[in-house]
Design a protein around this nucleic acid. Structure first.
Lengths: 120, 120
DNA sequence: TTGCACCTATTACGAACGTAAAAGGTTTCT
DNA sequence: AGAAACCTTTTACGTTCGTAATAGGTGCAA
């Protein structure tokens, strides 16, 4: 429901909000190669999709997210897992680690998680 | 590069190949609600994208995958991880488990993986 | 050999996307 | 008041996607 380009804008608002359109543009500048007009279009599409809200602030609007990042992230993750790994996370991790060496940090984090899950 | 609908067709061919268009249609029947024509369109788009190949077999074609599932799966996973988790898998697992209880099977599998990775 | 059956290839069409320019409405400066 | 500046809202346009229908070619039965 939220497109790739739109999610770039969401990321900005998840980081800080409220922001004016100009501020969003400023933050994205250098990271993406979009014209200001493009970013305004994306803000409007997100508005129409109720992913963000706009509050009037004097003569301009300030935008803030309505959709929460955690919900979005979970939905996207679940879609991918369902589509490619029958909904299970372990096979994804296994597959991933067979292609790309996990960092020490990753291993440590996973280890800790497993331990926590184990003795609860 | 490969769309959602197209990947449904790829899954069929990854499972068994070569297959005629009719066979693909037969296998998908009941799983998706597409007309035969739709599936043929998808096969042609996949051909154009070089994701599959068609070999003439008498008066018809048999299709087989060119793109390997493991490559596709890895690419898709990586894209998602990069976009949402800065490329790291552990945060994804942590996030996921905070939203959705991991099955015993998942936990066991992860545990085994971690152990294998640990002492190598 | 001619029409039919059976395939494949071409064309269609609306919605969503990426990307952006143009038009409109308010302040504000002069 | 009129023009300029600054925002927002509309409109645009080429692609890709989902979903199909139709046209085109070829071997086989009559």
């Amino acid at each position: 429901m939220i497109s790739d380009a739109e999610s770039r804008v969401m990321e900005v608002l998840w980081q800080t909000y409220p922001l004016t359109a100009d501020e969003v543009v400023a933050i994205l500048d250098g990271h993406v190669e979009w014209q200001e007009a493009t970013i305004r279009t994306l803000l409007n599409r997100l508005l129409k999709k109720k992913a963000i809200a706009a509050d009037r602030d004097g003569r301009r609007y300030v935008y803030r997210p309505l959709l929460e990042r955690a919900d979005y992230v979970h939905a996207e993750s679940k879609t991918l897992l369902d589509r490619l790994f029958k909904g299970r996370i372990a096979p994804m991790v296994v597959q991933f680690s067979s292609r790309q060496k996990l960092s020490k940090k990753d291993i440590a984090e996973l280890k800790r998680l497993i331990e926590d899950l184990g003795n609860e």
